[in-house]
Design a protein around this nucleic acid. Sequence first.
DNA 1: GGATCGGGCTAAATCGATTTAACTGAACTG
DNA 2: CAGTTCAGTTAAATCGATTTAGCCCGATCC
Lengths: 341, 341
Amino acid sequence: MKGISIKDIAKQAGVSPTTVSFVLNGKGKEKRISETVIKKINRIATKLKYRPNQLARGLRTGKTKTIGLIVEDIANPFFSLLAKVVEDEADKSGYKVLYSSTEDNLAKAQGLLEVLKYRQVDGYIITPTKGLEKDIEALQETGKPLILIDRYFPAVDSNYVVLDNFQGAYDAASHLVNQGYKNIGIITTTSSQVQMSNRFNGFEAGLTAAQAPLQKQFIKRLAFDQQRHAFIAEMKKFFQTAPTLDAVFFATNYLGIYGIEAIRSMGLQIGKDIGMISFDDHDIFRLNTPSISCVAQPIEDMGSQIVKILMDEILQATDIRHQVVMAPTLLIRESTGGKDH
Amino acid sequence: MKGISIKDIAKQAGVSPTTVSFVLNGKGKEKRISETVIKKINRIATKLKYRPNQLARGLRTGKTKTIGLIVEDIANPFFSLLAKVVEDEADKSGYKVLYSSTEDNLAKAQGLLEVLKYRQVDGYIITPTKGLEKDIEALQETGKPLILIDRYFPAVDSNYVVLDNFQGAYDAASHLVNQGYKNIGIITTTSSQVQMSNRFNGFEAGLTAAQAPLQKQFIKRLAFDQQRHAFIAEMKKFFQTAPTLDAVFFATNYLGIYGIEAIRSMGLQIGKDIGMISFDDHDIFRLNTPSISCVAQPIEDMGSQIVKILMDEILQATDIRHQVVMAPTLLIRESTGGKDH
DNA sequence: GGATCGGGCTAAATCGATTTAACTGAACTG
DNA sequence: CAGTTCAGTTAAATCGATTTAGCCCGATCC
């Protein structure tokens, strides 16, 4: 009932455990084990369905064939799809994934890093929270590969894979202007994290480049730790204080979702009365009536890049930093049809 | 850079590693270690921030403080929310979670079980695929606790936590009848798994009880391994061949989502021209215009039950089977407003 | 005063692999 | 023919914890 160990194979083959270990790790040739013995051991191993005990191996080698995935919220479709891709890709290399959500809470993130550290994961994929700089730097000191996703710290020299948030927001702004909207606003979060400030800056730059500079009264920043109703109420208040507003850019998918509700509850028609475009795609945006334009992230592609980089680093540590900025895709749908439609 | 081991503590405290182990495992009293030494060891352990090496411990004890979570698709909101709850709850007991998706593929599921087995997880949470009976039984033989979710095998005596699918579908049927719909149909999958057949049977029973027996021409079964467009095309064909149909029950959330698209593309008005209700809630159902009625599962509650049962079994194996059937909630929204609205 | 008991602690085995250092015997060298 | 080389293999240490089986010593018993 226990499990087949290297000793069992050794016994059956009439050789020592050492020899078995060499052979099963493909070091037979190198260690000058005879062809006969190599074949014999391999045959017995497959016959007994030998599976090395990962704990024993890990204890000795320090490698667990496990990676840690820290996301902001696994129930958010962006992260859950990413988690799926990551798991799939990692599996191909024989790695398993331990996941956790930070809820964007610093203390929780720090706790997770510590747990993963003493669980001795071989690499980390981390969606950092604000204030995690020091911990990330400390983690890098340990020599385990690490890669930040979705956002990064400009002041920390680390691997990362992120979207070109500036470009995505810039494209969204240009698109709104092209569609004939005049008074264009933005609803974003109060977060100062790099992905959010890039979206804001990209949006502002896009409007400016199109000769339609962003006006102060068309900017709304919302704290992210609110209840759904609070979001919607605040948005309605904003729309009322800026009645000339005719298009809005929502800086995250959940803001966009609340935005649909807010606009609808005011009796306005999306697209016609007020244009809207959101960052991040979502099933809802595709299926809503009218469908909602958005800046989509290449999640599958990101996931495989992330794992590829991590695997490369696990196999062979380098001093090269992998800093990947991926291109967003503007998905044009009905919500930005223009006022004249 | 290595990490603090029990030996380091022993050295500092001037005692043997054995004593340290006893104390840190709370067996100080039992093993008659003096108060003085116990305090000293504890003090040193916290000072050095000692964290036991899980691999070493696991190797010796056979426990890894890790559980395996096998879902059908982690990117499906039902499972990703469940995954979140499971991780949260497991974390409270110091357990970490390894996850994987089966894609409802038997071979993949079998592979996952094997990997998790030789990774020596302490317990399994499994969404079984069709044909996995033997593997589940074999796994039970190993003595590790296991709990099936979302569906189970009537022929296998195992733990499970599932929804009362029969009741949920029964309620949906009754509701449609109450709302005045006359020609009520069902769109379900070709799957013969218990959760699906219960939904079908519950729906049929609900209609029969309301004196509106289900008619053959109002039943449509779709293979689940199709592309989105194929689903929608098949649904449209079905609606065309059954023009008198005035309400439909969709047996899963993704069928419901495709259903919205299909109905919409035929130019019909949901609720008025044709009523609809779906199994499982989804953001889309809440936000759609009109909003879609559904049979919702108590996901948070399920998740904590699942982990609770598993933890109990890990701590103390019993022969009692935990078989939990949870009550669904009928969420009445606009899509079943009735024809006269 | 020798045997018994129990409190306080530890040596050593163990889990299952990896890895270093070395051993054996045959062949070759000079 | 002693010394070196090399192919083929293995004993033993190691990773860091847990756990069994005792050891030692002073107090108590008869």
